[in-house]
Amino acid sequence: MKTIALSLVHVGINPETAEEMDAMRGFIRDVLGMKEGQETPISWFGAGNRIEFMKEKGRGTKGHLGFYTPNMDQAIRELKAQGYSFDQDSAQYDEDGSLRLIYLTEEINGFAIHLLSRES
């Protein structure tokens, strides 16, 4: 069996409330000394873009895990061979038409899982 080349690039955290999210962002920033990164329409990044703080509840009961793969087609093929399926509606593409992001259909222990073709 081939080994799928995957590396964890970020953890997405879903808030229950805005106050809960502010507390977590404050802890990461003030206690751990990790800088906040870019803000997107749906989230803030922190800890060198390793933690994604969702502004509202995102995918996954608890949140999501983003994994980078240098070969999206191979990773998808190998995961499908192991019985995993992908949510085609979640697929996002780069300008050149190459697949940039896609979520597995299933959650694992309350976490949605997505693959990324870029490390950041």
Score class of each variant (00 low, 15 high):
Glu95Pro: 13
Gly58Asp: 07
Asp87Gln: 05
Thr17Tyr: 00
Gly63Thr: 10
Tyr68Asn: 12
Ser7Ile: 08
Asp73Ser: 05
Thr40Gln: 03
Pro70Tyr: 01
Ile28Phe: 09
Gly33Ile: 08
Val9Gly: 09
Asn109Glu: 11
Arg25Glu: 06
Ser85Asp: 04
Asn71Ser: 09
Ala23His: 15
Asp89Val: 08
Ser117Leu: 13
Gln88Tyr: 14
Gly66Ile: 12
Gln92Ile: 02
Gly26Ala: 15
Gly37Lys: 01
Lys57Ile: 12
Asp22Ser: 10
Gly66Val: 03
Lys62Ser: 14
Glu52Gly: 11
Ile51Trp: 06
Met1Ile: 04
Ser43Asn: 13
Ser98His: 01
Gly46Lys: 05
Ala47Val: 05
Ala81Glu: 14
Leu32Lys: 04
Ile13Asn: 00
Ala18Gln: 13
Lys57Phe: 13
Met72Trp: 07
Ile13Phe: 06
Tyr68Gln: 10
Gln88Trp: 14
Lys62Asp: 12
Glu107Ala: 11
Tyr103Phe: 15
Val9Gln: 15
Leu32Val: 04
Pro70Asn: 12
Glu16Asp: 11
Gly63Pro: 03
Thr3His: 14
Ile13Trp: 02
Asp30Val: 04
Ser85Trp: 00
Leu65Cys: 06
Ala47Gly: 15
Glu39His: 01
Asp22Met: 14
Glu36Val: 01
Lys62Arg: 15
Asn49Thr: 10
Leu99Trp: 05
Thr61Arg: 12
Gly33Arg: 00
Gly83Lys: 02
Ala81Met: 07
Gly46Ala: 01
Ser117Gly: 03
Thr40Tyr: 09
Tyr103Asn: 08
Leu79Cys: 02
Met54Asn: 15
Ser98Ala: 02
His114Cys: 03
Ser120Val: 10
Val11Ser: 01
Arg59Asn: 14
Ile13Met: 08
Ser117Asp: 09
Val9Phe: 06
Ile28Pro: 01
Met1Lys: 11
Glu56Val: 13
Glu56Gly: 12
Gly63Gln: 13
Gly37Asn: 04
Ala18Arg: 03
Ile4His: 06
Ala75Pro: 06
Glu78Lys: 06
Gln92Cys: 01
Leu6Phe: 02
Gly48Arg: 13
Met34Ala: 11
Ser98Ile: 01
Leu115Ser: 07
His10Tyr: 07
Ile28Lys: 00
Gln82Lys: 05
Gly37Gln: 00
Lys80Ile: 03
Thr69Leu: 12
Arg118Met: 12
Asp73Pro: 00
Ile28Trp: 07
Phe67Gln: 11
Glu52Pro: 03
Arg118His: 14
Leu6Glu: 10
Gly37Ser: 05
Glu56Tyr: 10
Ala75Trp: 03
Gly58Leu: 12
Arg77Val: 03
Ser7Gln: 13
Ala91His: 03
Ala18Thr: 10
Gly48Val: 06
His114Ala: 09
Ile102Tyr: 07
Ser90Ala: 04
Thr105Ser: 15
Ile76Ser: 02
Trp44Lys: 09
Thr69Arg: 06
Lys80Gln: 04
Asp89Ala: 02
Met21Phe: 09
Gly46Glu: 02
Tyr84Asn: 10
Val31Gly: 00
Ile51Tyr: 07
Pro70His: 12
Leu99His: 15
Val31Asn: 03
Leu79Phe: 03
Phe45Gly: 10
